[in-house]
Amino acid sequence: MTVFTDLTRVRNPISSANGLPNAHYIDPDIFTEERDAVLFDNWSGLAVTADVPEIGDAKPFTFLGMPLLLLRDKAGAVRVFQNICRHRGMILVAEPRKIEGAIRCPYHSWCYGTDGRLVSTPHVGGPGHNTHKGIDRDTLGLIEVRSHVWMNVVWINVSGTAAPFEEANADLIARWAEFDVPLHHGGADSAFRLDLACNWKLAVENYCESYHLPWVHPGLNSYSRLEDHYHIESAGHFSGQGTWVYRQLIDDAGNRFPDFKGLSDKWDTAAEYISAFPNVLLGVHRDHAFVIILTPDGPERTVENIHLFYADAQTDADLRARNTAQWKEVFREDIFVVEGMQRGRHASGFDGGRFSPAMDGPTHLFHDWVAAQLERRRAAE
Score class of each variant (00 low, 15 high):
Thr32Asn: 12
Thr32His: 11
Glu34Leu: 02
Asp36Tyr: 09
Ala37Thr: 05
Ala37Glu: 04
Ala37Lys: 01
Val38Leu: 04
Leu39Met: 11
Leu39Glu: 01
Phe40Trp: 06
Phe40Arg: 00
Phe40Leu: 00
Phe40Glu: 01
Asp41Ser: 11
Asp41Trp: 01
Asn42Gln: 15
Asn42Glu: 05
Asn42Thr: 13
Trp43Ala: 01
Trp43Asn: 02
Ser44Phe: 03
Gly45His: 07
Gly45Val: 08
Gly45Met: 13
Leu46Asn: 01
Val48Gln: 06
Val48His: 03
Val48Glu: 03
Glu54His: 10
Glu54Gly: 06
Ile55Trp: 00
Gly56Ala: 05
Gly56Tyr: 02
Asp57Asn: 15
Asp57Lys: 08
Asp57Gln: 10
Ala58Asp: 03
Ala58His: 03
Lys59Arg: 15
Phe61Gly: 03
Thr62Ile: 14
Phe63Leu: 04
Phe63Thr: 02
Leu64Arg: 05
Gly65Val: 12
Gly65Leu: 05
Pro67Gln: 04
Leu69Asp: 03
Leu70Gln: 04
Leu71Ala: 10
Asp73Leu: 03
Asp73Ala: 05
Lys74Arg: 14
Lys74Tyr: 08
Ala75Trp: 10
Gly76Ile: 07
Ala77Tyr: 11
Ala77Gly: 11
Val78Phe: 08
Arg79Cys: 07
Val80Cys: 01
Phe81Tyr: 15
Gln82Trp: 09
Gln82Arg: 15
Gln82Ser: 09
Asn83Cys: 06
Ile84Thr: 14
Gly89Arg: 12
Gly89Tyr: 12
Met90Pro: 03
Ile91His: 14
Ile91Arg: 13
Leu92Tyr: 02
Val93Trp: 00
Val93Lys: 00
Ala94Pro: 05
Glu95Met: 06
Glu95Ala: 13
Pro96Phe: 06
Pro96Glu: 04
Pro96Asn: 10
Pro96Gly: 06
Lys98Gly: 04
Lys98Phe: 11
Lys98Met: 09
Ile99Ala: 01
Gly101Tyr: 06
Ile103Gln: 00
Arg104Gln: 11
Arg104Asp: 10
Arg104Asn: 09
Cys105Ala: 03
Tyr107Cys: 08
His108Met: 04
Ser109Thr: 12
Ser109Lys: 10
Trp110Ser: 00
Cys111Arg: 15
Cys111Asp: 13
Tyr112Asp: 01
Gly113Asp: 09
Gly116Thr: 06
Gly116Tyr: 01
Arg117Gln: 14
Val119Trp: 05
Ser120Val: 10
Ser120Asp: 14
Ser120Pro: 07
Ser120Glu: 14
Pro122Trp: 00
His123Thr: 07
Gly126Lys: 07
Gly126Phe: 02
Gly128Asn: 06
His129Cys: 15
Asn130Cys: 10
Thr131Asp: 10
His132Ile: 08
Lys133Asp: 11
Lys133Trp: 12
Gly134Pro: 04
Ile135Lys: 02
